[in-house]
């Protein structure tokens, strides 16, 4: 049993990685990015293409793909999301939903329906494991993933609290109008935040490709996991996201213990229970899902 718990916690690292960008974009730009999973799959395909075509190891490939994802985030915010946000709160959701469809089908068009994986390109890392006391075997990749999640969340936390740019982003997320009045370029801060969010998505996509297989339509389930982990952890809280990822993974592991096909059900049940508790105890209705103060209006 302790073996399963350890595996569950480590899997939680992956969910935290994929939820991090979703929750970050939501807390800073108030945008629920439904293209989140598809963008992660896009990143996985980009790494796969570099590896299969040019024999570039996925870890080296990240040096190319992550800056590309950052640029995509910047452009998305500046030319798509910022404009659609002017049309009300619903429009960005629809926009990203449409974007997800476009990305999924473009990937299908380009790469076909075949299932791919990055596992063949990372050597023995995909199956190697360490033996821990108590004859627990942990996959090296799972440990790396978990460490990456902790480093990324911690790094983001430090960036947001300790640097001038981080403070600008937080100020913009709290009150863009007043941020402008103290000298912060709110549009730039939002575009930068989108770029950062996409870097985390790119990293999540890389691990998705290494630990499992993907096809052009893998985005939707990834979005679902990200969404569940973010809501369980309380959207808008970075460390909460890690906790949310772990809870989701443990619930899935437990579900699989109960019934061979209970893996996904276990996660959904945990998600619904947390959702129900949040809705009934916060007294705020759906707004209680979010650990954010209402944005000030002027």
């Amino acid at each position: 049993m302790s073996n399963q718990i350890v595996q569950g916690i480590l899997l939680g690292g992956y969910y935290a990685l994929i939820a991090c960008g979703l929750s970050f974009m939501f807390s800073v730009m108030r945008i629920i990015n439904l293209a989140h999973g598809s963008l992660a799959v896009f990143s996985a395909y980009a790494l796969w293409w570099l590896a299969s075509r040019f024999h570039i190891s996925p870890f080296v490939g990240l040096l190319i793909v992550l800056p590309l994802m950052a640029a995509i985030g910047w452009v998305l915010q500046r030319f798509l999301l910022e404009r659609s946000a002017r049309g009300g709160a619903l429009l960005p959701i629809l926009t990203t939903f449409g974007l997800a469809i476009v990305i999924d089908n473009a990937l299908f068009e380009q790469f076909g329906a075949d299932t791919r994986s990055l596992a063949p390109y990372i050597g023995s890392l995909s199956y190697d494991s360490w033996e821990w006391p108590g004859s627990i075997y942990v996959g090296k990749l799972a440990v790396i993933m978990f460490a990456a999640a902790v480093v990324m969340l911690g790094g983001l936390q430090l960036f947001l609290t300790r640097t001038r740019l981080g403070r600008s982003i937080r100020a913009t997320s709290e009150d863009p109008d007043t941020a402008g009045l103290v000298g912060v370029d709110a549009r730039r801060a939002s575009a930068l935040a989108a770029a950062i969010a996409m870097v985390t998505v790119g990293l999540a996509g890389a691990f998705l490709g290494m630990r499992a297989t993907f096809d052009p339509y893998t985005g939707a389930p990834q979005l679902l996991f990200a969404f569940e982990a973010a809501v369980i952890g309380g959207a808008g809280s970075l460390w909460g996201t890690l906790l949310g990822g772990i809870v989701l993974a443990l619930a899935q592991t437990l579900g699989a213990q109960v019934h061979p096909q209970g893996f996904l059900i276990g996660g959904h049940v945990a998600f619904l229970i947390v959702l129900f508790i949040r809705l009934s105890t916060s007294g705020l209705g759906l707004r209680g899902l979010v650990r954010l103060p209402a944005r000030k209006t002027t």
Partner: peptide, 23 residues
């Protein structure tokens, strides 16, 4: 601004440092 419009999630020092953004 009227009503002060501080960034309430941030500390006094962070609010002050934000004022330096324009450099």
């Amino acid at each position: 601004p009227e009503g002060r419009k501080l960034f309430v999630q941030m500390t006094v020092e962070e609010n002050l440092l934000l004022g330096k953004t324009a450099g």
